[in-house]
Design a protein around this nucleic acid. Structure first.
Lengths: 159, 159
DNA sequence: GTTCAGATACTCGGATATGAAGTGTCCGAGTGCAAAGGG
DNA sequence: CCCTTTGCACTCGGACACTTCATATCCGAGTATCTGAAC
């Protein structure tokens, strides 16, 4: 059970875009330089964020990506759901109905499997914590010098 | 981000073993029949539980698996950690130190990355909920007829 | 000098290869039972 | 009839293929800018 690196990359890019406060779109090549990431692959990873309405993409020359909403209105849950999907990590295959369970009455399986309920309970706690934190909150956790450093770095590479 | 089926299979087997209340070990073939699972593959999935000290294995004829502890002393966290590993789902690769971050002072990265902290916070909530629920608790969530049905089914296939 | 048309360079989006990890199967090592032989 | 010994059948454990998903890359569609000429 392991989360893909798309979440980490996406969140870092969202923070960078918020700090830059650019009103013109930022191309993936520039974003990739900020974190030394493979540009083509980063582009593929940001596309789910566009489809989810978190990023706005502008095609053509001088195109690129920009935040579609304010950082306070983007939760970590939104990002994780966009990149990793909305389905639950634990998926119940209803094996309780097989073998010994095949002998049971049909109405006995009215409510969901106890194991699925227990796992779902834990996963809901996880989702709740993700939904309670926004990109703006995470920006506050970063070191104070980071915003200015990103802005300066971006100005240098756009020369 | 998806959890392997080993957790589901392992938990169902733990519940079945607890309900059987057998003092002699139960072979994987019997367990597999209870849920109509591939026997050889189920065996592979139960091995991590043995290494974690949740199941006790007996080799040789009349061998098999038995609970190593009482159901009240086995948390869902124990099972998930044994099967899926103890490492966190979100792994920080410290890309904040690359690119623009390379220009920062070294002491600026004293405390962990804000993104990692936020993700860790959510994951800790998940782990807390898993650790708060035991196999005995999950047994209580199952339908009332399940224990007797499993016992009867097991008696039939051991004839 | 201004305007318009065309070419150009740069961007995103999806379709296409590659690698690792999860999934599934197999064979060998070890153990307890059972049966046969001897006392 | 009881004990010992030998063989055997059954079990787990780890080593070996295969499939699926994540990773990494490439090419095509589209747009704003820049250049040039005409008015």
């Amino acid at each position: 059970m392991q989360m893909g690196e798309g979440v980490e990359w996406g969140l870092h890019c969202l923070l960078a875009l918020a700090w830059l406060e650019e009103h013109t779109p930022v191309a993936t090549g520039r974003l990739a330089e900020i974190f030394e990431l493979p540009p083509e692959y980063l582009k593929k990873r940001l596309q789910p964020l566009v489809r989810a309405g978190i990023l706005a993409s502008s095609p053509g020359a001088r195109g690129g990506y920009a935040l579609a909403r304010r950082p306070e209105e983007i939760t970590l849950m939104d990002v994780v759901a966009a990149v990793e999907g909305r389905e639950e990590a634990f998926r119940c295959t209803e094996i309780r109905k097989q073998g010994a369970g095949a002998l049971a009455e049909a109405d006995e399986f009215g409510e969901p499997c106890g194991i699925a309920k227990a796992m779902r309970r834990a996963e809901m706690a996880w989702r709740r914590e993700l939904a309670a934190q926004t990109v703006a909150d995470v920006m506050g956790l970063a070191s104070g010098g980071a915003p200015a450093r990103v802005r300066r770095f971006y100005q240098d590479i756009t020369l």
